[in-house]
Write a protein that binds this DNA or RNA. Structure first.
Lengths: 230, 230
DNA sequence: TAAGTTTAGTGTATTATGTACACTATAAAG
DNA sequence: CTTTATAGTGTACATAATACACTAAACTTA
C-alpha cells in the first residue's frame, strides 16, 4: 500500500553530539570540518542523511563511523530539530543524538565526508554551522540533567577507573566540587561498582584502587526501582 | 542554495499523545478513529504530515486542532520514531509529542480527517494502529518520570483546584497512594501555589479551599535552581 | 635511608528531610 | 440535631545530607 498522494517532503538527517573525556579534566566535543557546501570549511557536528531503509539510530552510528571512525559507543536520541530555514539548501529536519565516549580507548580518524575531525573543549567551541550551537546546548543540558539520576557517566571513563576519576567526571559535568568522603559513600552504597584487586600504575604517589561498573547489578537495581541520584 | 542531489526521502509526520483528566480518578488518552487507509476505521493517535513551511510543534498543534478541536494546550516533544516498516505506505518518520489537558475546560469535537475522537482510559486502551501503542508507552514512561521532579501535573487540572484533586492526580500518574499530610507539606513548601479566598461548591460535605498554580513564582524558583521533587 | 611530596582512603557529629500515623473541624443532608 | 463525608492539621522517629581533617602509602630526591 504505497502513498496515494505524494507531498513535497523535508529532507531528514541525523546529527551526533559526541562528548569525550581523556586524562585532562575537561569535557570535549567531537566536531568535523565540513568538506562540502553549505558551510564548507566550517566546523559542524558529524551527521548526514538518513538512508531509506535505515533505522534512525543506525543512521547516526553509520555517519559517526564514516566521519570520525568512532564505533560501538553509548548513543541516545536527544531531540528533533526542524525549524524551517535551519538549512539553507531547503527544509531539513534533523534527529539529534548524543554520545559518550572514553577518549583513551577510542582513537579518532577523520574520514571520507569530513576533511578533519577534532576534539574541542566544550567551554571553548568554535562557531558551528547550521543550528548546531543550539543542538550542543540542548545536549549539554540533557547530560547535566541526566547524570544526576542515572549513572551514564561511566561511559566516559575507561573500563577500569579509580574513584577519584569518577568524582572528577561528576565535578566536570556538574561544574561544582564534590566532597570526597560523601561522594565515595554515596556511590559505593549504590552497589553497582566492583572493587578490583588491581591498582593504578605509573603514578608518583600512592596508587588508587581500580573499580569497574557492574551492568548486571545496575539492571537489577533499576527493576527494583532503586534511585541513583548523586 | 538548493540541494545539489535529490535523494529519495522519508515522509515526516507528527503524532500527539494527549493525556486528559476530568472528575474521574482515571488518566485518559485521546484517540481518533481513522477515516482513511491504511488502518481505516481503527483507533490511532491524532497526527499527520508536517507541512513544508511549518515548524514541528506548529504541525502538531495544527493536526491536533484539525482532528480533535483541541487548542492552546501544554505540548512537548517526546521522541522520534523512524523504524523502516512502521507505516505500510512507505518509509515514514514520526516526531511524537505529548500533551496534557484539563478535560472539563476543553471539550473535544471530532473533525475533518477523523471520523470520531474519543477519550479512553489509559488502562483500557483499544489496539492502536501503526506503532502507536509503543508511542503511548513511551509517553507514559516520560510522564511518570517527569512528574516526579517537575510540576507539569497542573496542566491536567482546572485553573483553580483543591489540594485533594492535586494529590489524586499524582496518585493516578505515579500509581501509588500518597500521605495527605506529607503531600500537602511538601507541595506547599515549594511555594508555587496561591491559596485563594475561594472554596469548592456543590459538595455535600465541608468545602475545600481552592488553589492556583503561580507560573511566575515557578519560573523564578527554576532560575534559582530550586528542586521540585515529589 | 630519611625527609618531602602527592594522592588515597577513612569516620563522626550535626542538620535537614522523609515517613508514619489519627484526630478535630466544617458543611450539607436527612 | 444527628449523621455522613471530606477538609485540614502536628509530632515523633528514622533516614539521609552535609561539613569537616587526619593517617596511609607510594614514589622522589637530597
Amino acid at each position: 500500500m504505497p502513498f496515494t498522494y505524494e507531498y513535497p517532503r523535508p529532507a531528514v538527517t541525523v546529527d551526533c553530539v559526541v562528548f569525550g573525556l581523556d586524562t585532562e579534566p575537561q569535557l570535549k566535543l567531537m566536531v568535523i570540518q565540513r568538506a562540502h557546501p553549505p558551510f564548507a570549511g566550517e566546523w559542524a557536528l558529524p551527521g548526514g542523511f538518513v538512508g531509506m531503509d535505515e533505522d534512525l539510530e543506525e543512521s547516526a552510528r553509520r555517519e559517526l563511523k564514516e566521519e570520525t571512525g568512532i564505533d560501538h559507543i553509548f548513543l541516545e536520541q536527544l531531540y528533533t530539530f526542524g525549524k524551517p530555514g535551519r538549512d539553507p539548501r531547503g527544509r531539513t529536519i534533523t534527529v539529534a543524538y548524543y554520545a559518550l565516549i572514553n577518549l583513551s580507548e577510542h582513537p579518532v580518524t577523520a574520514a571520507s565526508d569530513a576533511q578533519d575531525a577534532r576534539w574541542f573543549e566544550v567551554n571553548h567551541l568554535p562557531k558551528l554551522a547550521f543550528d548546531h550551537d543550539q543542538i550542543v546546548a540542548t545536549a549539554l543540558q540533557r547530560l547535566r540533567g541526566k547524570v544526576r539520576y542515572q549513572p551514564i557517566g561511566f561511559e566516559l571513563l575507561p573500563r577500569k577507573f579509580t574513584l577519584t576519576q569518577l568524582q572528577q567526571l561528576y565535578e566536570i559535568i556538574l561544574e561544582k566540587p564534590l566532597d570526597k568522603r560523601n561522594f565515595r559513600r554515596k556511590i559505593l552504597k549504590m552497589d553497582i561498582l566492583v572493587a578490583l584487586e588491581e591498582y593504578q600504575t605509573g603514578v608518583p604517589h600512592r596508587a588508587a584502587r581500580l573499580y569497574q561498573f557492574d551492568e548486571k547489578k545496575y539492571q537489577q537495581k533499576i527493576k527494583a526501582g532503586f534511585n541513583f541520584e548523586i
